[in-house]
Amino acid sequence: MARYVVQRIGVALLVLLAVSMLSFGLLKLSGDLATSMARDTASAAYVDFLRKEYGLDQPLPIQYLRWLSRALVGDFGNSFFYGRPANQLLAERLPVTMVLGVVGLFIALIFAVPLGVVAAIRPGGILDRLASAIALLGQATPTFWLCFVMIMLFGINLGWLPVSGTSSWLNFVMPGIALAYYGAPAFLRIVRSGMIDALASDYVRTARAYGLRPPTVLFKHALRNVLVPLVSVAAVQFGFMLGGSVVIETIFALHGVGYLAWEAIAQNDYPVVQAIVLTVSAIYVLLTLAADLLNAAIDPRIRLE
């Protein structure tokens, strides 16, 4: 187990290092930073000054190491647009996105896991076809359309839910549903196919041969063996959902990371873009690591290796 954990953490660190190099490379490819920082009106001497000041005249490896050592302590520089440290901006916005992501993940799982289980009981049966129809609908309907329908119905006509802002937990209900709608089909598919395999397995036949009741067979013996792939997919899907939240945050005016990223890209605000890319990548890598560790806790074959 200890070896497994160390190995997973090592892999995660390597991935992060690669991401940082890529991110730094993209920054370099995006043009001369000194020029973009100086704005159009600045003199050539001022641009030179900036270049020296920020170490942009140094060899690339040195620049990278400096940049990395600052990034490691969360120093990405000031936002060109807001004039405040990029990491502060990010720290303000991150909780909103995380809450949205967790709410969306939770709703998606609550919905998809039971549906996947009942779909697998009789593949090709009515419930199974109903479940695949729902999944297909979920994938075919654009998220923004669902958002607008919900806003019109629950926000405007019925007036049950606020349509914008982050003032209460009610603000997260519609965006959470929209995000879940986007993420659920992947969970439904993995649970359904995993359960079909598990229900056809010898160990489920054994459980039935010893008279265990159907709920025990289904939820204890079969579903347990679907958790490992489900956790792995959930980690990846959570990352996708964070990405997918850009549209949803914009529609519901949730001031989260997605919204910030959209602003920063539109304004060539490199420090903020950098901070977002690296932080989101780090979250992604951490999620994968968490999934691996969780799977080790779930599956004795991983844990006891």
Binding site: D202, Y203, Y210, G211, H221, I298, D299, P300
Partner: peptide, 29 residues
């Protein structure tokens, strides 16, 4: 089943549930 009439399968490697300890499987029955 499992109480008066029971069964032993051919391949014990696939017939036992990989996710549970043998104690849990025995006491469960």
């Amino acid at each position: 089943r499992g109480r008066r009439l029971s069964m032993i399968f051919q391949d014990p490697s696939s017939a036992l549930n990989p996710a549970y300890s043998i104690g849990s499987q025995l006491t469960g029955v």
